[in-house]
């Protein structure tokens, strides 16, 4: 086992070293003439307006949240999947299958919830909440001031 994990370490070192050595070698060969215009951020040739480190669209964070839930789930199914065949050959197949089904059932409920909440839609049309709808209705009923 130590040998196997050692190989992972060796490959990681080699990958990092491969990039580092080539970039260092290149440093001896390549030109290096920095000037202010060259080092500006590319924005189609125009002078850049503001930085890019801004608040970003919230949709991406929703996707990330949903991902975390389901990725953990996949990670949890892996050990069960490995053990499933041994259980099956021991005659405990139906028991293991029921366990998997219960676990997946809970997760499918989660997927259905996210789906029903329309968090999987990329183009979201904001539905007015009930309170907002009521205030909007009241406002339309109010007599116009002046």
């Amino acid at each position: 086992m130590l040998f196997n994990l050692g190989n992972v370490l060796v490959f990681s070192i080699l990958a990092i070293a491969f990039c580092a050595v080539h970039l260092a070698l290149g440093k001896l060969l390549r030109p290096h003439n920095p000037e202010a215009k060259k080092l500006t951020t590319y924005e189609c040739g125009e002078p850049p307006t503001g930085g890019a480190w801004i608040n970003f669209n919230i949709r991406f964070y929703l996707i990330a949240l949903v991902f975390v839930i389901f990725e953990i789930e996949v990670a949890f199914i892996f050990p069960v999947a490995v053990a499933f065949r041994a259980w099956l050959l021991n005659g405990q197949g139906l028991f293991a299958l029921t366990e998997i089904l219960i676990f997946l059932g809970i997760l499918v409920v989660g997927l259905v919830y996210v789906w029903a909440k329309r968090d999987l839609e990329w183009l979201k049309r904001l539905q007015p909440t009930e309170a907002e709808a009521q205030t909007a209705a009241k406002e339309s009923e109010l007599p116009k001031a002046a």
């Binding site: 992972v8 990958a15 990039c19 440093k27 060969l29 390549r30 290096h32 500006t40 951020t41 930085g51």
Partner: peptide, 29 residues
């Protein structure tokens, strides 16, 4: 290899330099 290596002034230099390493590492390993 022979081309100039431009790192923009506005960039976050350590992260900018390190990012390609992670990609190559992720596939070579």
């Amino acid at each position: 290899i022979l081309k100039e290596d431009v790192v923009p002034d506005a960039a976050d230099r350590p992260l900018f330099v390190f990012a390609p390493y992670l990609l190559v590492w992720g596939f070579l390993a």
